[in-house]
Design a protein around this nucleic acid. Sequence first.
DNA 1: CGCGATTTGTGCACGCCTTCACAAGCGCCT
DNA 2: AGGCGCTTGTGAAGGCGTGCACAAATCGCG
Lengths: 248, 248
Amino acid sequence: MSQQRHGSTPGEADGVPAFPDLPEATIARLPEYLRALHHLAETGAETVSSEGLAAAAGVNSAKLRKDLSHLGSYGTRGVGYDVALLVDQIEYILGLDKNRAVCLVGVGNLGHALAGYAGFASRGFRVVALFDADPKKVGEQINGLIVQHTDDLERIAAEESIAIGVIATPPGTAQAVADALVAAGVTSILNFAPGVLSVPSNVDVRKVDLAIELQILSFHEHRKASLTALPGGRSAPPASGDQEAVGS
Amino acid sequence: MSQQRHGSTPGEADGVPAFPDLPEATIARLPEYLRALHHLAETGAETVSSEGLAAAAGVNSAKLRKDLSHLGSYGTRGVGYDVALLVDQIEYILGLDKNRAVCLVGVGNLGHALAGYAGFASRGFRVVALFDADPKKVGEQINGLIVQHTDDLERIAAEESIAIGVIATPPGTAQAVADALVAAGVTSILNFAPGVLSVPSNVDVRKVDLAIELQILSFHEHRKASLTALPGGRSAPPASGDQEAVGS
DNA sequence: CGCGATTTGTGCACGCCTTCACAAGCGCCT
DNA sequence: AGGCGCTTGTGAAGGCGTGCACAAATCGCG
């Protein structure tokens, strides 16, 4: 089926973008739907039912339908959702059609890995600049990019109109880096350094702390151990295996 | 409420651990509180007010008080919380006093970084085994550990009584690794591979997808760009069409 | 010893999110 | 052409989390 001009979104040619007001919880799940859809598209599927897509994305089908309903009616009753159309739709909503430029600050262990992470390039992001404060690392070439000194961060990030910055520095320097990013016009920051960043209210910050994730798992380990040791604790495994994901 | 034994803490020798039933949202914040408390302890503070700790952890003070109230009354009205006591308390709840053993599967770019991540060791976790399916990587030494083949994962993980496994493999092999981990008795998995893992219901899975975080930020970028272009938008000079010319 | 300043712990209301259940719509088959 | 089965989209209900506002409790000081 060739794509028909179904509604009026990605093109934004009708003058009014009418950007939908999506719940945060929905936004956080859209990327997962998108990944599942790409996978389905590779297998040749043209349409998916909410049940099928929900299973592929690890969520409840009702939740998925409600999420998708927030972006408009892009499904066909009795049939399901057009995979290609939905991919376009979600990519447009997420702004992934812009192939956004990202810069990465801190080329240590983690930063090095992030610079080479294939998942970025394949999902709509281009890492266009690397920075580090260590003179020994400046000049090093990683994945085709040359590491530059953080002193030049503000100038270069502004020149390249970078909107998203990734911080992978030690905790001590994270705030200074964030300040420089903000000064350069960056309005979204992904922070891997432990600690709280203080930024203007128009800047979005998302934090990923690897140790925190482990600590949450540790809690559940502790809880499980306590329950099995307790008399009244439910220790018997329930019926059958179902994904047990803990919300982020 | 009527809980007033301040002295008895982690030891809990009176037979009934009485594991509190904490809300998930609270659990997810405890590690952040813990980090802030450690930082405060280093500066020599003996007590903290809920206001102070909340600021250090980046949350609302009322939320912090409610969170802490779930673990019991460990504050003193008019004074604040005893830093050392609270640290012990949270570490006990999170099960960090056990110094848990963790194994890491997949020593690619990201896995390499995780193996050397200092934040793990410093926060109650020991990486005790590394695995990879690539024969060229087996035998390599990273951070004092020798990479072993994933064929031996199940045996070794069971021998070492590993309870937490970290998956940093390509998406295609993640499910197989998860199955092996589960077979070895692992009951908590931290998954960095994109995709949904299917595991028994007694196994906890937490997922970290770096690209998803970027996509969420991308959405907010898209939204901000749309708002500035709209009539009701905020004060922003850039009126160029669809490209991002962010000028601050 | 009493009083005021300070800070915790919590009852309550509100809003968001999830889940259920079902009507509406669509395509296919007879 | 009509009916039947399937799937979406959504109204409503319930649960969870957040934040306010205040009573209870503790300390220090006159």
